[in-house]
Structure formats: structure tokens, C-alpha cells
Amino acid sequence: MVRKRFGALSEHVECFLRRMCGALSPASRLIVVLTMLTLFTVLSLYFTVSSVCRFGQGTDDAMRIRHIEPAELQREPTATDSVKQSNDFNYDDKRETE
């Protein structure tokens, strides 16, 4: 549904532009194209230069570097541990083998 509407809209815009450009003489088309090219070039240069000039200005909060802090883990009691140790591997004590 939405694709059909966008498709119809793009066809109408294309038809309108073809009609408008078809009514112009070749010299007029050249003037229009060069004017638009000049306008877009000037705008592009303006945005580039203004963004380079304003780089780094503003609040210091946005550029503050903070260290990563360790995550706070909740320690559960060993009684509620999901993995139960069935063997005791305590090698420090001296016990007799069977």
C-alpha cells in the first residue's frame, strides 16, 4: 500500500520535472543546472567550514572521558548455588585413603 503511494508520487514528480525541463530551451537548462550546482557547492562548503570552526566548542560535559568502572556483582550464598560440588578436593589436609 505504502509502496504504491510512493511509486505514484515519484511518477508524478518525475512527470512534472520532465514537463518543466522540456519547456526550457537548452541555454535556459544550462543556466538552471549551473545555478543549482553553484548553490549546492556553496552550501556544502558553508556547512563544512562552519562545522570545522565549531569543532570542540561548547560544553565540556560532552567531551569528558571517564574510566570504565567494574561491574557490581551480587554474591549469592553458597547454599543457593546451582552447581553443587560432590567431591571435596582439599589436598592440604592429611587424611587416610580407604
Rank of each mutant, 00 (worst) to 15 (best):
G58L: 00
A79Y: 10
M1S: 13
V32D: 00
L24I: 04
T80I: 12
R66M: 15
S10F: 15
V83Y: 00
F89A: 08
G58S: 00
T48I: 14
L30W: 09
K94A: 08
A8L: 11
T35V: 10
D92K: 07
M63K: 13
D93H: 09
V42R: 11
E69I: 07
K84M: 07
S50A: 15
I68Y: 12
T97A: 05
R64A: 03
P70K: 00
Q85R: 07
T41N: 04
V32K: 04
Q57W: 08
T97L: 13
R18N: 00
Y46L: 13
D93R: 09
L34E: 04
R54L: 06
E98D: 14
V52N: 09
V13G: 00
N90T: 00
L30T: 12
V33M: 09
P77W: 05
R64I: 06
F16M: 14
V13C: 05
H67S: 14
G58C: 00
V33C: 12
R95A: 10
R19Y: 08
S10G: 15
R75H: 10
T41V: 09
F89E: 08
L39Y: 08
S25E: 04
P77R: 07
D61Y: 01
V42S: 10
Q74N: 10
A71H: 09
R19G: 07
C53N: 08
A79W: 05
L9S: 14
T48Y: 11
E96W: 11
V13D: 01
S50G: 10
H12G: 05
A8Y: 04
T80M: 06
P70G: 01
A23M: 14
S10I: 14
N87W: 07
G22H: 03
I68K: 06
A8H: 08
F16P: 01
I68D: 02
G22C: 04
T97S: 04
K4D: 13
E96L: 14
K94S: 11
R5D: 05
C53H: 06
L24E: 05
P77K: 06
L17C: 08
S50Y: 07
S50P: 00
V42G: 02
T48N: 12
T41R: 14
